[in-house]
């Protein structure tokens, strides 16, 4: 464990908790938040942590896996079940066909994995899925331009998580003799590029919104 990875995990957790708090605590509507992206994230954790009960890495690792699964499912539950929130979720805007993404990632995982076992294929699937899970949110943001519920902190922590993980991989590459995580690194770079695109549209929406608000 290095400080970059620990900080990356913490900022990742913070981004999830900020979104959960925003949706649940303020009972605010979930306009502008893509339920599909949140469902894909929950699926990423569920398929990645299948080894939760078979391989023990550390207490930190086991606890964080439970926290990630619980918090991501809590967001999905809130957006699907919570009477106040679900009414406001605009499903006719959140129309990204994520089935295709699921299928593409699964086929890719069947072709590209470290070892052809059930857990390893689903681990690779979760890595690819995490890279593209932001797409429904990106499309929704391009359509709605609404950043009210996607607070700046959420985007900030999401970016910090990606940046710190890339530094973590560079650090491990130079300090550990045979550190090769090609699947995670290449997919992580694709994910970071998509996040950069998301941040760009977030900034544009935020800028136009502030301009719109000015004359009022």
């Amino acid at each position: 464990m290095n400080i970059f990875r620990f900080a990356g995990d913490m900022t990742h957790l913070m981004s999830i908790l900020i979104l959960l708090l925003k949706i649940y605590a303020t009972k605010s509507c979930a306009v502008g938040i893509s339920l599909k992206t949140q469902e894909l994230y929950a699926l990423v954790f569920l398929t990645r942590y299948l080894d939760q009960f078979t391989d023990y890495v550390s207490l930190y690792n086991s606890v964080m896996k439970v926290v990630f699964i619980a918090s991501s499912l809590a967001i999905v539950w809130c957006m699907r079940r919570h009477p106040l929130v679900r009414k406001s979720y605009d499903k006719d805007l959140d129309t990204f066909r994520h089935q295709y993404v699921l299928l593409a990632c699964f086929v890719l995982a069947l072709l590209l994995h470290e070892i052809f076992t059930f857990q390893e294929v689903f681990w690779a699937f979760s890595i690819y899925l995490e890279a593209v899970a932001i797409l429904p949110q990106l499309v929704l943001l391009q359509r709605s331009g609404n950043v009210d519920n996607l607070t700046g902190q959420y985007v900030l922590f999401l970016g910090a998580y990606r940046g710190l993980y890339i530094i973590n991989w560079i650090y491990r590459y130079f300090t550990e003799d045979h550190f090769t995580r090609w699947i995670a690194c290449v997919s992580g770079l694709v994910q970071t590029a998509l996040y950069a695109d998301f941040f760009y549209y977030y900034y544009l929406s935020w800028k136009t919104n502030t301009k719109l608000k000015l004359p009022a």
Binding site: M1, R5, D9, H12, R48, D51, D55, V57, S58, N61, M64, K65, F68, E114, I115, E120, W123, Y165, N168, T180, R181, A184
Partner: peptide, 10 residues
């Protein structure tokens, strides 16, 4: 056979 490295990252 070479074992896949343990998945120590979250």
């Amino acid at each position: 056979e070479d074992e896949a490295p343990t998945k120590d990252e979250l």
